Amino acid sequence: MKRVAVVGASLAGVRAAQELRAQGYDGGIVLIGDEPHLPYDRPPLSKGFLAGTASRESLDLLDTGDLASLALDFRLGVRATALEPADRRVRLSDGTSVHADGVVIATGGRARTLPGFEGAFVLRTLDDALALRAALVPGVRVAIVGAGFIGAEVASTCRSLGLDVVVLEALTAPLAPVLGPSLAAVCARLHLDHGTDLRCGVQVVGCSPAGVSLASGAVVSADVVVTGVGMTPSTEWLAGSGLKVGNGVHTDDGLVTSLPQVVAVGDVARYGGRRHEHWTNASEQAPVAVANLLAGHTAQTYTPSGYVWSDQYSGTLQLAGHPRPDDTLSFVDGDPSSSSFVATFSRDGVTTGVFALNNAKLFTRLRRQALRRPEFQPAVQG
């Protein structure tokens, strides 16, 4: 294998490039990214960077030493437009192409948009964050559609800037399908305790200079509207490649596609019938995917840890595992009304997840104990 093309220059792509070198690969690595920026970290975009307390340089995933040791051939500011496996070629939007013996698909996705919200901001890229940050001037009222992790973090940052914030959520409580009613109520409390106007169970239909229009006919006044309603995997460029796509790039449990010389990592990878849109997942997949790419077959399998964290207001939320909202919830330390607690999920007597608010030490210990047990691992979903 003389050259590997890594398509996608964010965390998953960078980790794949680093892992190629760590596993002894000394051939060429072409890192293709549709943004003009060198690879950067996304979590601070909704937090410190949006607030203006984190610099652009602090986002960099690679320092000068990394750039020298990895010896990457960067192709930035161009999109991959086609994968031609028979010719071992990736075609690019500038009319050029890259010949590669192996391909790592790490294209992630783009922020999902809503019809009728053409004037709204989204937050997925550095340029998105720069545009939104410029709009958050003193005195503006911000409406955020969606109370998931991104929506909650943007709301928290806006409140730290002294702005009036309303969060509009279709669910009866934030993150209820993931955390269940008790912990969803904790997330709601964080909003309310910090002066955010949280409105759940509402349906939005569009936005205008006046604000956000609801299905009820009411208009929520806002100067700045942000939608945080998930992402869409970037797979269109794979049409005609022979790879199976649909809500991501389908792989086996080793992150290998139907073509052994092509693997997928990060938000775009769909294995076991699921995608996992988390920072930790994008980072942890690289060693397995790269090992299988270099082996030419699935020699290792990947098991997701299910770890995700979110900084919201005065709280750091941490979740590990693969719980269902109807699993039994038990509080190991503290209770839902506490500013710090740890809880576990269980099903049929088996721990399925650990959740903490502002208690990283106990969370980490319980997470490690649970992850040692094979029954903690998720069942494959079809």
Score class of each variant (00 low, 15 high):
residue 253 D to W: 06
residue 251 T to Y: 08
residue 230 G to W: 09
residue 340 S to I: 04
residue 123 L to C: 03
residue 73 D to Q: 14
residue 200 C to D: 06
residue 119 G to I: 00
residue 11 L to G: 01
residue 208 S to A: 07
residue 58 S to V: 08
residue 294 L to F: 11
residue 125 T to R: 14
residue 258 S to Y: 05
residue 342 V to T: 15
residue 125 T to Y: 12
residue 97 S to F: 15
residue 234 S to G: 06
residue 131 A to I: 06
residue 10 S to K: 03
residue 194 H to G: 02
residue 19 E to A: 12
residue 187 C to M: 10
residue 244 K to F: 09
residue 339 S to A: 14
residue 88 R to P: 01
residue 121 F to R: 02
residue 320 A to D: 00
residue 305 S to L: 12
residue 335 D to V: 06
residue 291 A to M: 04
residue 375 E to R: 11
residue 69 S to R: 15
residue 189 R to H: 13
residue 317 L to A: 01
residue 155 A to V: 08
residue 158 C to A: 14
residue 325 P to V: 10
residue 285 Q to V: 12
residue 165 V to T: 00
residue 108 G to A: 09
residue 321 G to N: 02
residue 324 R to E: 13
residue 294 L to T: 14
residue 147 A to G: 07
residue 237 W to M: 13
residue 102 G to Y: 10
residue 312 Q to D: 06
residue 157 T to G: 01
residue 28 G to R: 15
residue 115 P to K: 05
residue 152 A to C: 04
residue 228 G to H: 02
residue 135 A to K: 01
residue 287 P to W: 07
residue 272 G to P: 02
residue 85 P to Y: 09
residue 3 R to T: 14
residue 300 Q to S: 12
residue 2 K to P: 03
residue 323 P to F: 09
residue 146 G to I: 12
residue 80 A to Y: 09
residue 115 P to A: 06
residue 198 L to S: 05
residue 213 S to E: 11
residue 169 E to L: 07
residue 126 L to T: 04
residue 327 D to W: 01
residue 337 S to H: 11
residue 142 V to G: 00
residue 156 S to H: 06
residue 287 P to H: 09
residue 339 S to R: 12
residue 25 Y to M: 10
residue 366 L to C: 04
residue 370 A to V: 15
residue 130 L to C: 03
residue 51 A to R: 13
residue 327 D to A: 02
residue 243 L to I: 14
residue 81 T to D: 11
residue 319 L to H: 02
residue 62 L to C: 08
residue 118 E to L: 00
residue 297 H to W: 10
residue 255 L to V: 09
residue 360 A to Y: 01
residue 352 T to S: 08
residue 70 L to Y: 06
residue 72 L to R: 03
residue 101 D to C: 06
residue 123 L to K: 00
residue 106 A to K: 08
residue 19 E to D: 12
residue 63 D to Q: 08
residue 298 T to I: 10
residue 6 V to F: 02
residue 5 A to Y: 03
residue 162 G to K: 02
residue 84 E to T: 14
residue 5 A to W: 01
residue 22 A to H: 11
residue 92 L to D: 10
residue 204 V to N: 06
residue 269 A to V: 14
residue 175 L to S: 12
residue 183 L to D: 05
residue 239 A to T: 15
residue 333 D to M: 08
residue 130 L to N: 11
residue 226 V to H: 01
residue 227 T to W: 05
residue 245 V to N: 08
residue 282 A to E: 03
residue 186 V to T: 11
residue 141 R to Y: 00
residue 117 F to Q: 02
residue 313 Y to G: 00
residue 333 D to P: 01
residue 325 P to K: 08
residue 201 G to N: 12
residue 44 P to M: 10
residue 255 L to K: 05
residue 150 I to M: 00
residue 19 E to L: 07
residue 53 T to M: 03
residue 340 S to C: 06
residue 64 T to K: 08
residue 265 V to T: 14
residue 271 Y to V: 08
